[in-house]
């Protein structure tokens, strides 16, 4: 599977039009329903190659797109979400510099 290809498991004859937000492989237990003692084996079953990680990120991105950006009449929510997310991201990457602006020595 190279760049820009469909996932190996995707079969147009069976699955119909390609949905980029969907995982076409064999479904495992959803993360929200995993018991704590099964968590290790659940992570052990995960595919941890870079391409699989990129695929997961891509599906998450498209799920967000389909839910908040692509509907017909969207409000400001996706823009605010992007704004808040980027604010948090830049706050975290700049935290080392911001730390020096603390006003109090003892808390």
């Amino acid at each position: 599977m190279g760049f820009g290809d469909y996932p190996k498991e995707y079969n147009p004859a069976v699955h119909g039009p390609y949905d980029p937000a969907r995982y076409y492989g064999k479904p495992d237990t959803p993360f929200g329903q995993v018991k704590l003692n099964e968590l290790g084996s659940w992570f052990g079953r995960r595919n941890k190659t870079p391409s699989a990680f990129m695929g997961a990120c891509s599906r998450a991105w498209w799920r967000w797109q389909h839910k908040y950006v692509q509907p017909k009449r969207v409000g400001m929510a996706p823009f605010f979400q992007l704004l808040v997310g980027s604010m948090a991201f830049f706050y975290v990457i700049n935290y080392g510099k911001i730390k020096h602006h603390r006003n109090y020595k003892y808390h």
């Binding site: 699955h15 119909g16 039009p17 389909h66 839910k67 908040y68 692509q70 509907p71 929510a77």
Partner: peptide
């Protein structure tokens, strides 16, 4: 694997 349909936007509170 039903054909994907364009849904309504997800609900949010406090704007985001």
């Amino acid at each position: 694997f039903p054909r994907p349909v364009r849904g309504e936007p997800g609900k949010v509170r406090l704007g985001f």
